Simulated assay, not measured.
Amino acid sequence: MRELTVVPVPGPGAEDVLIGHDGTAYTGTADGSILAVSSDGDTIRRIGNTGGRPLGLEWLPEGRILVCDAHRGLLTMRLDTGAVEVLADSVDGRRMRFCNNAAITADGTIWFSDSSAKWGIEEWKSDLIEDTRTGRLLRLGVGESEPEVVLEGLCFANGVAAGADSSFVVVAETGTRVLRRVWLRGPHEGERDLFASDLPAHPDNIARGSDGLIWVTYASPTDPALTFLQTKAKPWVKLAVLRA
């Protein structure tokens, strides 16, 4: 087993990690910062600040990264200047509440999740307790400004990953412990199915590894109390828990 090294960063809540060709690791923190950590962990510099709460990160051309910001939507940031541009912050005229994670397919299409249409990141537990199922998987084509809803009714949409050949996209549904797949081309084009179900814990970020596999991180073990609230609790019980 590999030795685990903890690298402290100057900010709370480090989220997604993006690795550059030189081994530099990029991550975002709760104060809005995007940080670059050298491969040996000895040097940390601040690239810029989104003015929100950065979560998922992905590579874009021309020295930019894609940032899923829970407060501000889908953004880009330049690595040389830290300049931020908003790609999309609303869907069908309504502001996104919880932009979370993304993947980019070979044609440049951005596939990203909006975890909840009701609760923001500060109240993420409320979405799971209430079981709103308002999470969505969205797509934004190259040159487009209006995202398209591809999947809806998800129980806290979270991590997003694309297949190695860009023939499908997978989104993690945290509340129900499943990974859902959308086929983009091939004999199953247009179909939706379960990529994995009955996971042993609640999935968070997911990513395609260099081995072509979809790797899954877990936010927490299976929670019997949450399962009860989602499947058996009466509305007044959920309301009491939300107010507690």
Rank of each mutant, 00 (worst) to 15 (best):
L79M: 12
L79T: 03
L79A: 06
L79P: 08
D80K: 09
D80A: 15
G82V: 10
G82E: 06
G82T: 10
A83K: 08
A83I: 05
V84R: 00
V86Q: 05
V86M: 05
V86R: 09
V86C: 11
L87Y: 03
D89S: 15
D89N: 14
S90Q: 15
V91G: 02
V91Q: 03
D92W: 00
R94Q: 13
R95H: 11
M96H: 03
R97P: 00
R97M: 13
F98S: 04
F98G: 10
F98M: 11
N100A: 10
N101D: 15
N101K: 02
N101R: 04
N101M: 01
N101P: 00
A102G: 05
A102M: 03
A102C: 07
A103G: 10
I104R: 01
T105C: 12
T105Y: 12
D107P: 10
D107K: 03
D107R: 08
T109R: 00
I110H: 00
I110P: 00
S115F: 12
S116C: 09
A117C: 10
A117T: 14
K118H: 07
K118I: 13
W119H: 13
G120T: 11
I121P: 04
E122D: 14
E122W: 09
E122Y: 11
E122T: 12
E123F: 07
W124A: 15
K125A: 12
S126N: 14
S126W: 10
L128V: 06
I129T: 13
I129W: 06
E130A: 15
D131W: 06
T132N: 10
R133N: 15
T134H: 05
T134S: 15
G135Y: 05
G135K: 06
G135I: 04
R136Q: 14
R136Y: 08
L137P: 05
L137V: 02
L138P: 04
L138A: 04
R139Q: 05
L140N: 02
G141F: 00
G141E: 02
G141Q: 01
G141T: 01
V142T: 07
G143F: 06
E146A: 14
E146W: 05
E146Y: 09
P147W: 10
P147R: 06
P147C: 08
E148G: 01
E148P: 03
V149F: 06
V149R: 11
V149H: 11
V150W: 10
E152H: 14
E152D: 15
E152K: 11
G153L: 04
L154S: 06
L154R: 04
C155M: 07
N158L: 04
V160F: 13
V160Y: 07
A162T: 14
G163V: 01
G163T: 06
A164D: 07
A164S: 12
